[in-house]
């Protein structure tokens, strides 16, 4: 009865190189789209300002001004890749900044304070992860609790801004290494280092691959015998730790800690990650893409500064760009779903 073989069992090996690329690297396309947008923005601005826009110091300042966001975006990428979301990062950054600044004010050395700040971030991340993983709380809500907690704790430390005078923290920001007209600060290097470590973790470790597997299909990952619980937990810890580190960098950047810092930063971070091509449903995206997303964000801010118009346009533009990207992503996903 089943002896009638009707269709060839093997797939055709004759494939065009374009098809080959599509079947292998389709998930990189949104990243290329982000790069295209970035390039288009730069070229557009360059033309608009009669070639008076792009300069090495300007590009250097984009990294400098957004290094905290870059660090947050790396952590957020881990969480979003698992299919979750972390709304707490802005508040955690602010709280660890406050806490660190108060410890420094009390005379603790920065060599102790900085690790403590990272640990605080990690701890809040762990708490969120436990709620998500062990009590089936939606990531949205669990990280919301983390955000409220960190926001409130920031005010518990102090209602007012705390000035930071510690030389080694300030060194992170003040020292600029110049290469011709280009320059880079320790915070910038730190941010790029975080990007590199994040990218390597995701691409070349089992932990990283499990993150993708969990985001792709959590049930499958569990049935495959992968350590799903540990991985999801760790993703939130990574995000929390990044938020702690961002707290260090942001404190160095502003030279002070203020409990109202970083309001809405979680939204900027999510926007940057999504613009960088990471799908919010999880399982697809790259840290490098998030970096591009942060640069797009920084570029918009810079252009709006250059135009001299109201800064409220930044958020409007980011919102518009986010929309554009989401629509494009949506079209890509819909088309690949139809192909199947």
């Amino acid at each position: 009865m089943t002896s009638t073989q009707v269709a060839p069992a093997r797939e055709s090996h004759v494939v065009s190189s374009r098809h080959r690329f599509m079947t292998r690297h389709a998930s990189w396309i949104p990243v290329f789209a982000a790069i295209a947008i970035l390039v288009a923005m730069v070229i557009g601005a360059q033309i608009y300002f009669d070639g008076d826009f792009l300069s090495p110091p300007l590009i250097s300042s984009i990294l400098l001004d957004n290094s905290y966001l870059l660090i947050l975006a790396v952590g957020m990428t881990f969480v979003i890749l698992t299919g979750g979301i972390d709304l707490s990062v802005g508040a955690v950054m602010s709280f660890t900044g406050m806490f660190g600044a108060s410890l420094l004010r009390d005379g603790l050395p920065s060599g102790v304070v900085a690790p403590v700040m990272l640990a605080c971030g990690a701890l809040i991340g762990l708490g969120i992860g436990v709620l998500v993983q062990y009590f089936d709380v939606q990531p949205f809500i669990a990280s919301l609790a983390g955000m409220f907690l960190a926001r409130g704790l920031g005010f518990v430390v102090s209602l007012n801004s705390i000035k930071v005078t510690d030389s080694s923290i300030l060194w992170l920001q003040r020292t600029r290494w110049h290469f011709g007209d280009w320059y880079v600060t320790a915070t910038g290097i730190l941010a790029l280092l975080v990007v590199a470590v994040g990218a390597l973790l995701l691409a070349y470790t089992r932990f990283g691959r499990t993150i993708y597997a969990v985001g792709g299909n959590e049930q499958s990952a569990r049935l495959m015998g992968l350590p799903v619980a540990r991985t999801k937990l760790l993703a939130y810890v990574v995000s929390g730790t990044c938020a702690g580190l961002a707290g260090v960098v942001f404190t160095a950047y502003t030279g002070a800690a203020y409990p109202l810092n970083g309001i809405g930063t979680e939204l900027d971070t999510i926007a940057a990650v999504v613009i960088g091509g990471t799908l919010l449903i999880g399982g697809s995206g790259f840290v490098v893409g998030s970096m591009i997303g942060v640069f797009v964000y920084g570029m918009i801010k810079t252009i709006i500064n250059f135009l001299g118009v109201d800064q409220s346009w930044t958020r409007i533009t980011i919102g518009g760009l986010l929309l554009l990207f989401v629509v494009v992503q949506r079209v890509i996903v819909a088309r690949s779903a139809r192909r199947r």
Partner: peptide, 22 residues
């Protein structure tokens, strides 16, 4: 358009206050 609600409304959440400021 079939965009995820959290993102679709995030757009307005980001842009809305800017519009109000304008």
């Amino acid at each position: 358009l079939g965009i995820q609600p959290i993102i679709a409304t995030l757009v307005l959440m980001l842009a809305g206050r800017g519009i109000a400021l304008l």
